[in-house]
């Protein structure tokens, strides 16, 4: 019985929780959690900490990065603001996440790299930078017809060609993305 650790609903822990056992959180934890067992954050649980565990199951709220060596499972009702990293990640319907999700690839090397290279990870978010590329496609159809129309009207196609190159709306879109990242921080 005493092998199971429960942070009850009326309990707040401020600081570092570590060990080789499993942990169930119904109350508040503010600090850092690093355990070798299974961490369950229950519906009323509120965790403001970076978490490192073998298995992380979330039904409550977390603000911080979740790194699991086996599985991260966000169940209905979970609210997570932070990055997820694990070999296996499950996000159920009704779970809310804001952050980077990195599934697959052993989570074993994760602990140090994820913290040390955090800015690098953000830069590395090339897949995210791909979103401007997607939105870049949108303005293209807009400009092309006008360019075509201009090309029909006048023969100065070279000028219009440069016009076509000119308005890559990447910069404002990137700004938005940067803003989003800043907000997340």
């Amino acid at each position: 019985m005493t092998d199971v650790t429960v942070i009850g609903q009326g309990t707040t822990v401020r600081g570092r929780v570590s060990g080789a056992a499993s942990l169930e959180i119904q109350g508040h934890v503010d600090g850092e959690i690093s355990i070798e067992g299974e961490l369950t954050i229950e519906r009323d649980g509120l965790v403001s900490a970076n978490v490192d565990a073998r298995v992380i199951i979330v039904r409550g709220a977390v603000k911080g990065d979740l790194v699991a060596h086996d599985l991260v499972s966000l169940e209905a009702g979970a609210r997570v603001v932070g990055d997820l990293k694990a070999p296996r990640i499950a996000i159920a319907q009704g779970a809310l996440v804001r952050g980077q999700v990195q599934a697959g690839g052993g989570g074993s090397s994760s602990k140090l790299t994820s913290r040390a290279s955090k800015p690098a990870m953000r830069v590395e978010s090339a897949p995210r930078a791909a979103t401007p590329a997607r939105s870049e496609v949108k303005p293209a159809p807009r400009t092309v017809p006008s360019v075509l129309a201009g090309a029909r009207g006048t023969n100065g196609s070279s000028a219009h060609a440069s016009e076509r190159k000119a308005p890559p709306p990447v910069v404002p879109v990137l700004k938005k993305v940067k803003g989003a990242i800043a907000k997340r921080r």
Binding site: T2, T11, R16, V17, A21, G37
Partner: peptide
């Protein structure tokens, strides 16, 4: 209530 099991250590 709250149980801090034998495998867990808390600093704080």
């Amino acid at each position: 209530g709250t149980v801090i099991g034998s495998g867990i250590s808390i600093e704080g």
